[in-house]
Structure formats: structure tokens, C-alpha cells
């Protein structure tokens, strides 16, 4: 798989699950929310690794997936918390 495609897949999966994690966080307590966020992040990471089928290293995952996930989780959590 090309580098660009791997980055795109990682971006898309982490973006979607990041927003989902943000929504799930609004229906739980703070500590539980954080735990859900971490578990979902790891699951998404392993799922992406399975799709990409390449050992690209933890740094690559942090830059191409985990970072977007955390930002979107936080933003969407704040958004859903205020909207719902």
C-alpha cells in the first residue's frame, strides 16, 4: 500500500472514531469517558494496522492517526456536551 493511501485510511478511521468517542463521552462520567476514549483509540489503531498491513511504527501512528483522534474527540465532546 502506498504511503499516501495508508495515511488517508488512518486519518479517516481515526476521525470517524474520534467523533464517535466524543459523543460516547457525553453520556458517561469523566473517568469512564477517558477510559472509553483510550480503549476506542487502541481498537481503532489496531484496526487501522490490520487494514494498512504495515508496521509503520508508533510515531507514524501518533502523527497520522492518534493526534487527529484526540483533537476530534475533545472538540466533539465539547460540541455534543453543549448541544445535547
Amino acid at each position: 500500500m502506498k504511503e499516501e493511501n495508508a495515511s488517508r485510511i488512518s486519518f479517516v478511521t481515526h476521525t470517524i472514531t474520534g467523533v464517535l468517542a466524543g459523543y460516547l463521552s457525553t453520556i458517561n462520567q469523566f473517568i469512564t469517558s477517558i477510559s472509553y476514549m483510550i480503549v476506542l483509540l487502541l481498537v481503532t489503531g489496531y484496526a487501522t494496522e490490520f487494514i494498512v498491513k504495515q508496521k509503520k511504527g508508533v510515531k507514524w501512528w501518533l502523527v497520522n492517526g492518534a493526534l487527529y483522534y484526540v483533537i476530534l474527540w475533545l472538540v466533539s465532546w465539547v460540541f455534543f456536551y453543549n448541544m445535547l
Partner: peptide, 13 residues
């Protein structure tokens, strides 16, 4: 610690 993370244990770095 890296071994438990996705994409970990790549041997680089």
C-alpha cells in the same frame, strides 16, 4: 510500552 501500542515494535528508531 511500545509493544502494546498499534504499529509498535517496528524495529526502527
Amino acid at each position: 510500552f511500545k509493544k502494546f501500542l498499534p504499529f509498535g515494535d517496528s524495529g526502527e528508531d
